[in-house]
């Protein structure tokens, strides 16, 4: 029994609980406003967008890739949906057409990522970085440089502001996406294949996994959830424009890293991504409450990423990034060799 408790505290979830507890204690001492119902629900609203995007990006990260285009993809989808919705005066038909168009765009972009990464053999971070710029450049073509304001109380308003049994709609969408992604990863052969590919692509190909096909599907899923996140985001803010979703890939990446997902691939799951999104949302909210100016928040984000990956290296539980096991050498490698 005793060993079970120590294992929990020393384990992954014990550490996560400890971090949350620390934050709650700090907030209880310094800023009571943190616990007001209004603030708690605003945290969850912010988390829902990060969370939806993180669940999809997880598929790519499990393969050892990265998707830096999710922020721009979310923005593009927000702009496409609001454009179609506005032409239909925010009726249901226009919103659904827009959603279909945005999802189609996401599938095309994701497929393109997959093709470039697999068949042309390009590094995923370069590909998605380039498409991040390209998608960002396409946005003003649709908005013609202006903001699109969402008016009325139609479907477009409901997505971000309605409540189901008292739970805000974005959180419901987030939970649905998280459950679906979790089931795909843990209960389907496709999900298990992704872990295999992330662990060792060559071996996976040798045992007959269609590595290229599965990789393409993973990139498509990442873009589709980013498009969904964009829809929720613009519906919550009632506005879509050039700045929508800009820089969100940083927050999603932060969620991945603090959630303990191995960026080298093959390790991690939806619970980690959800926890990471939770932590990222709480940290952003905390900084706003403490009056940290918006431009200084990046500094804190960077420090947290550094702290998280340093912690990961020194606890030795998991490696800290793209190809850390290969690169970890010198003293650390000797130590791990002794332990292993």
């Amino acid at each position: 029994m005793n060993s079970k408790i120590t294992r929990f505290i020393g384990g992954q979830w014990g550490q996560r609980a400890l971090i949350l507890l620390l934050i709650f204690i700090v907030m209880a001492v310094f800023e009571r406003k943190f616990f007001t119902p209004g603030n708690v629900s605003s945290i969850f609203l912010a988390i829902s967008v990060y969370g939806i995007m993180a669940c999809g990006m997880l598929f790519v990260v499990l393969l050892g890739g990265l998707d830096l285009s999710v922020g721009s993809m979310a923005g593009l989808s927000a702009v496409i949906i609001s454009f179609f919705a506005k032409n239909d005066n925010f009726g249901t038909g226009g919103v659904l057409t827009g959603l279909l168009a945005a999802l189609a765009a996401a599938v095309v972009v994701g497929w393109l990522h997959g093709v470039l990464v697999t068949q042309i053999n390009m590094p995923s971070f370069v590909v998605t970085l380039a498409t991040k710029y390209i998608l960002y450049g396409f946005m003003p073509m649709i908005t013609s440089g202006a903001f699109i304001y969402i008016t009325g109380e139609g479907l477009m308003y409901q997505v971000g502001n309605a409540k189901v049994l008292g739970v805000p709609m974005p959180i419901v969408i987030f939970l649905v996406v998280a459950v679906i992604c979790g089931l795909i990863l843990s209960r389907t052969t496709f999900g298990r294949r992704l872990y295999a590919i992330g662990g060792n692509p060559t071996a996976s190909a040798l045992v007959g996994i269609h590595v290229f096909r599965d990789t393409k599907i993973a990139y498509i899923i990442s873009c589709v959830t980013a498009a969904l996140g964009g829809m929720v985001l613009c519906s919550m803010n009632m506005i879509a424009g050039q700045t929508t979703g800009n820089g969100y890939e940083g927050n999603v990446l932060l969620a991945m890293i603090v959630g303990g997902i191995n960026l080298a691939g093959g390790e991690g799951g939806v619970p980690g991504a959800v926890f990471g999104a939770l932590l990222a949302g709480i940290i952003t909210n905390l900084m706003t409450l403490l009056g940290v100016s918006a431009d200084f928040q990046k500094f804190v984000q960077g420090m947290i990423i550094l702290a998280a990956i340093t912690l990961n290296v020194y606890t030795g539980r998991r490696s800290a990034g793209l190809s850390a096991p290969k690169r970890r050498r010198g003293k650390a490698a000797e130590e791990s060799a002794k332990q292993g």
Binding site: V313, G321, A324
Partner: peptide, 9 residues
């Protein structure tokens, strides 16, 4: 021994 990509980001 952090990874270049994440550390420099």
């Amino acid at each position: 021994h952090l990874t270049e990509f994440v550390a420099t980001l």
